[in-house]
Simulated assay, not measured.
Amino acid sequence: MRSASLVRTGLTDDVVAQLTDYEASDLPESWKAALALCDRLSGYEHKGVIPAELYERLGEHFNEQQILRLGALLASASGWHRMIEAFGIRPDHYQADTSAPWAAAAG
């Protein structure tokens, strides 16, 4: 995995590479718990109610308000991601002098 937008936010290439298999990585346990929640909310691996084990794992690092805020942030980001995919926007390849990807279709 490689993401210029993640690197621009301050993550190193090494950290970004570890996101692919974060459970086996040396990332902080709080990050791993948050990434597991991200996978759960995105429907990447599982759907439905957050299992008690994951909620307990999150509770080791975050309080209830932080867990809800993290969930809201992840839900917002997931919706944003789906929107940019639908419009064909490629943030890592954005160039200020190019037309919007949907401009040709509107044509």
Rank of each mutant, 00 (worst) to 15 (best):
R2E: 06
R2S: 04
S5K: 12
S5V: 11
V7Y: 05
R8M: 14
T9M: 13
T9K: 15
L11H: 13
T12P: 07
T12G: 11
D13P: 08
D13V: 14
D14Y: 04
D14Q: 11
V15A: 02
V16H: 00
A17Y: 00
Q18G: 05
T20M: 06
D21C: 02
Y22C: 01
A24D: 09
A24M: 08
S25P: 05
D26K: 07
D26R: 09
P28E: 06
E29M: 07
S30D: 07
W31R: 14
K32S: 08
A33W: 00
A34Q: 06
C38L: 11
D39H: 08
R40C: 03
G43F: 03
G43H: 02
E45W: 10
E45Q: 15
E45H: 15
H46R: 14
K47V: 14
K47E: 15
V49P: 09
V49F: 06
I50H: 11
A52R: 15
L54A: 10
L54E: 10
L54G: 09
Y55R: 15
Y55N: 13
E56R: 15
G59T: 07
E60T: 10
H61M: 10
H61N: 10
N63E: 06
N63M: 04
E64Y: 04
Q65N: 12
L68K: 15
L68N: 15
L68I: 13
G71M: 09
G71F: 04
A72Q: 15
L73D: 13
L74R: 15
L74K: 14
L74W: 09
S76W: 13
A77Y: 07
S78V: 05
S78F: 09
S78G: 13
H81S: 15
M83E: 02
M83Q: 04
I84V: 11
I84A: 05
E85T: 03
E85Y: 02
A86S: 11
A86V: 01
A86C: 01
G88C: 02
G88P: 00
G88K: 02
H93C: 00
Q95Y: 03
A96S: 10
D97R: 10
T98R: 14
T98I: 08
S99F: 04
P101L: 02
A103H: 03
A104W: 01
A105R: 10
A105K: 13
A106D: 08
